[in-house]
Simulated scan of single mutants.
Amino acid sequence: MIPYLDPSALKIGPIEPFGMFVALGIFLASYLLSRQAEREGLDATPLQDYAPWGVGVGIVVGHLFHLFAYHPEELSKSPFQIFKVWDGLSSFGGLIGGILAAVFFFRARKLSFRDYADTFALAVAPGWAVARLGCFASHDHPGRLTDFFLAVQFPGGARHDLGLYDAAFLFAISGLLWGLRGAGMLRGRLLPLLSLLYAFGRFGFDFLRATDRAYVDARYLGLTPAQYGCFALVAFGIYGLLKWQAPERKASPDVSPGGSVQPQVR
Rank of each mutant, 00 (worst) to 15 (best):
R189P: 00
P192F: 00
S195G: 08
L193Y: 09
D206W: 06
D212C: 13
M185Q: 13
D212N: 14
L197M: 12
L191V: 01
A199L: 07
G184R: 10
L186Y: 12
F200Q: 00
L190C: 02
F205G: 01
F203T: 02
Y198M: 07
G204N: 09
L190I: 06
L193A: 03
G204F: 15
R209N: 05
F205S: 06
Y198K: 09
G204L: 15
L193H: 03
F205C: 02
L197H: 06
F207W: 09
L186G: 05
D212V: 06
L197C: 15
L193S: 07
R189G: 08
P192Q: 12
L197E: 08
G201Y: 09
R187C: 10
G201P: 00
Y215I: 13
T211R: 12
T211V: 11
G184Q: 05
L208K: 02
M185R: 15
S195I: 01
R213S: 15
G188C: 08
G188V: 01
F207D: 07
A183G: 12
D212Q: 14
D206Q: 06
G188I: 04
L194A: 13
P192R: 08
A210F: 12
T211S: 13
L191S: 11
G184V: 01
D212L: 10
M185N: 11
Y215R: 15
G201W: 08
L208F: 10
S195F: 07
G188L: 07
G184I: 08
F205W: 09
L194Y: 15
A214K: 11
G201H: 13
T211C: 04
G184H: 03
R202M: 09
R209C: 06
Y198V: 05
M185H: 15
M185Y: 13
F203W: 04
F203V: 02
R209L: 09
A199P: 00
R213Y: 14
R189D: 14
A210Y: 08
L191D: 04
R209Y: 03
R202G: 03
T211M: 09
L191Q: 01
S195R: 00
R213K: 09
L208T: 04
L208P: 03
F205E: 11
L194S: 09
P192I: 07
L194V: 02
